[in-house]
Design a protein around this nucleic acid. Structure first.
Lengths: 342, 342
DNA sequence: GACTCGTGCACAAACGTTTGCAGCCAGATC
DNA sequence: GATCTGGCTGCAAACGTTTGTGCACGAGTC
């Protein structure tokens, strides 16, 4: 039923191979012949069969993307970037949600491996060994994860943390809490590293809590601990946790930012629209997705080792909104703090 | 480099066809032979080449999903459902973001058509003619859109609206605003239809505004209009708009729910965690995605017309949270309303 | 005018799998 | 013991495309 290259060939009075060459932007056919072929293809609405093509070329024209949790808007941002850039280059994208399970993630990649030319992985939880094994099966490009000889797009969390610290110090905060995300997560380690370095330089004390689930609920849980820590500001691993913190602080009658400053990380849509709008670090999600695809495709079409093992670093920026202010003089956990105003 | 069926055949001392049959869960091979083949396949780590397979079978084992806007968490929910269900049935998922452009959507489907067995479409904006044309190219399953002879999973928005109306009437609201989403959107028409019917039955007056963009900004824009409409409650096309309304009302010093009730639609994660938590109608997003895949696959493997043209209706439920309360006696737009308490 | 050269095209093989058909062998039937 | 039957298996074709090889033909050179 579907029209094949033979149909086009018959109509254009040439052989199938000539049709193929005419369509592959080849200069190997005469101008007049090419036009005839193109016309025939258009009239018949010819669309090449990707299976047949990839069978012979060994390339699929597809890439895969694996994310740990689609409910986190951070990854949907990445997904948008990936898809847009892939489409630009004529690639289609396979998508899979690992549901935060490294085992499932690996299985998904193995399942995809045969029908993609490479996969972009957002895999904060997978082990290095796992990733390396997968890199042996198919081309890989990582996002926010560093692994020798595997290309990766990295968002400069450390710089973001430095900006946050400078901001808080300028506001007079001397003792702040950091609510850790999952310990295994590369980004959490990276953020913590940046935070510690910046805090040390600025002589700011950081009290760490966690790890917590990097979700709203995790933030709710963490808020009470942080409140008891005698701090004037709370920094969280990501925005979802920060939203949880805000919610819990509101419940407990702690005024933000008057009594407590809160800083998130990611700059999700909701950080801008919640009340009060959240001060946070903007992560270039779509740009990260695009960069990862660029690296992946460079490793695929281009020189093999030209693209492999290279890293692309993307800048992050502090977005100051309404949850940070000058440090309160009275710590909110002190017994003389006013009772919650219902 | 990759291991083929011939490698397995050689190792198991049989012909490739026997290997194929042994793996296709066929009863056509002797038990002992099958075991030998399976063992060989396992040792070699054989993974069949999907391109070769689909070339001969005409089936790809893939489905596609097209959504209008990935930034809307509603669609990521659907995406999760689709992917989970597809994986369960051994299908991989191609993903594409139409970016709210019907033309792009159609192009995406056409591009996918050759490498999928069917596609799930969330296409509120595409025209009937467009969808019908696409249905001629590949199998289709729609979500929240009714089209003759095309299977679809439908969420019963009308029932949701009825529940909202009953709830508001019980709270004493007699005059409420409805902020329309895009007029072309099937779901908006559906919701409005349900709303009008229920309101008529309950003798409640509905003042309509819009259409607006179904996003936060649209809600912000719409809020002022609704405030001037002399209503005691605002119903919105979706949660994103409701969040925009809440934000704008807070800015203008209108207390929710004391002076104004607000109801959303969708039950996004953020509806539960914003302040105050949003009363809204829960849409079964993941279930909808799963149902759409079920219908699609039924149309593909099963009897051709057994699945086509069937609809699956999913129930919706009102979730009462903190943005609805008894109707205020003084309309917030009346001149004697107290000035915003900064 | 014979040779070379290059352009433009067709032929055919190959990619890895599935599947219809035919063959083989063992057991059963007469 | 010959024929039949039916369960297993191998052979080969086919799916639609790309691509290496070779042929034909015309133009150029001596």
């Amino acid at each position: 039923m579907p029209v094949t290259i033979h149909d086009v060939a018959r109509r254009a009075q040439v052989s199938p191979s000539t049709v193929s060459r005419a369509l592959s932007a080849s200069h190997l056919v005469r101008g007049t012949t090419r036009e005839r072929v193109l016309a025939a293809a258009k009239e018949l609405g010819y669309q090449p069969n990707p299976a047949a093509r990839s069978l012979i070329t060994g390339r699929t024209g597809n890439i895969g993307i694996v994310v740990p949790d689609l409910n986190n808007p951070f990854y949907t941002g990445v997904l948008r970037g990936v898809q847009a850039r892939a489409r630009q280059s004529g690639y289609a994208v396979f998508f899979a949600d690992g549901e935060e399970d490294p085992v499932a993630e690996e299985a998904l990649v193995r399942a995809m491996a045969r029908q993609v030319d490479g996969v972009v992985m957002c895999a904060p939880f997978a082990s290095d060994a796992q990733l390396r094994a997968l890199a042996g099966i198919t081309s890989l490009a990582l996002l926010n994860r560093r692994l020798r000889d595997v290309p990766a797009a990295l968002m400069d969390s450390a710089s973001g943390m430095r900006q946050v610290v400078d901001h808080l110090v300028a506001l007079g905060h001397r003792r702040v809490a950091y609510l850790n995300g999952p310990n295994i997560a590369w980004s959490n380690r990276e953020r913590r590293r940046g935070l510690r370095a910046a805090a040390a330089r600025a002589r700011m004390t950081v009290v760490e809590f966690g790890p917590f689930e990097p979700k709203f609920e995790g933030g709710v849980q963490a808020a009470d601990l942080a409140l008891a820590g005698g701090v004037t500001a709370i920094m969280t691993y990501n925005d979802l946790m920060a939203l949880g913190v805000l919610s819990r602080l509101a419940d407990r009658g702690v005024a933000v930012p008057q009594e407590m400053s809160v800083v998130g990380f990611d700059n999700l849509l909701y950080a801008a629209v919640c009340a009060p709008p959240l001060t946070t670090v903007a992560m270039p999600m779509e740009a990260g997705g695009r960069a990862a695809v660029d690296l992946l495709l460079a490793g695929i079409d281009g020189s093999d080792d030209g693209g492999a093992g290279t890293f692309r670093e993307l800048t992050t920026n502090l977005i100051v909104r309404a949850t940070t202010a000058a440090a309160s003089t009275t710590s909110p956990d002190s017994p003389d703090s006013p009772p919650p105003a219902a």
